[in-house]
Amino acid sequence: MKVAYWPGCVSRGFTPELHGSMAKVAPLLDIELVELDRAACCGAGVIAEHNQELADTLNARTFALAQQTDGELMMNICSTCQGAQSECQERLDANTDYREHVNTHLSEEGLKYEKGLTNKNFLWLLVEDFGLDELRSRVKRPLTDLRVGPFYGCYIVRPVDRLGIDDEHPRDRYLHQLIEALGGTVVDYAGVYKCCGFPIITMNKEASLTQAGRHVGDAIDAEADCLVVPCPLCHLNLDLQQPVAAKVVGRELGLPILHLPQLVGLALGLSPKELGMNKHIVRPTSVIDWSTSVVAAA
């Protein structure tokens, strides 16, 4: 399938391994990525906190660009983009007057956002459009014996109404389902749906890193080999900042944190290095050991 692909800023900035691993994984799943390289930052909730209309307009522009492509839908690889964009889209779709008003700012470029865009995180697309059965059939290296803790990130699980989470679309269980479909073992721990703390890293570093450190610690106590996150901002706090978080919570940590496409890529047979895991701050030793042991066994 062909999708209008919004990688977000951080996946092309401080977590280049995310954008890179998505590019490696997409062809293995026959997903054609039409990159929205003309679109601007989603605002991550911060621009909306400054001026709601500005955030709505920037994202309406992104949606309009996506609608110009021949992609079936728009796909992102960042929980924060998903949440911030869903919030703007909710306002744009709820009120014709407002949408037309916002569209006046796009008219100079000849762009117009038409209500009703489908914008899905890679996780949602995998489960709802690609299908877990299809994914299972493509697994080359099942994640047998790999104990994976899901970490969703706030923006992709709340508010449940806005994100369309209900019994028919249990999107807050998709990471669990995905880990199982790839052959891994789901590790449940206290932090699954909690906040990584990243939004307040510049305002209250201690509170921010206490959150990150606590969740990583809880996952270690639950004997996880790694965590998987669909959000690069969570990855920054959980991986890049993990050594500092360890000091804040006063215990040793050292748990590898994987981006979602990296976990999928591992199961599809790519090597940790191809997936950019050598770029992580916490060396994904346990994951590499696991992958070599699987190769050796095979």
Partner: peptide
């Protein structure tokens, strides 16, 4: 748009959704 004097803020609690059927639903497909 970035002009505090003319900022527009849409509060959905106040204005509500204009559609009876939730077309704004994320499952619009």
């Amino acid at each position: 748009v970035d002009d505090p004097e003319h900022e527009v803020e849409l509060n959905l609690y106040v204005t509500g959704y204009e559609d009876e059927t939730p077309e704004h639903s994320p499952h619009d497909d």
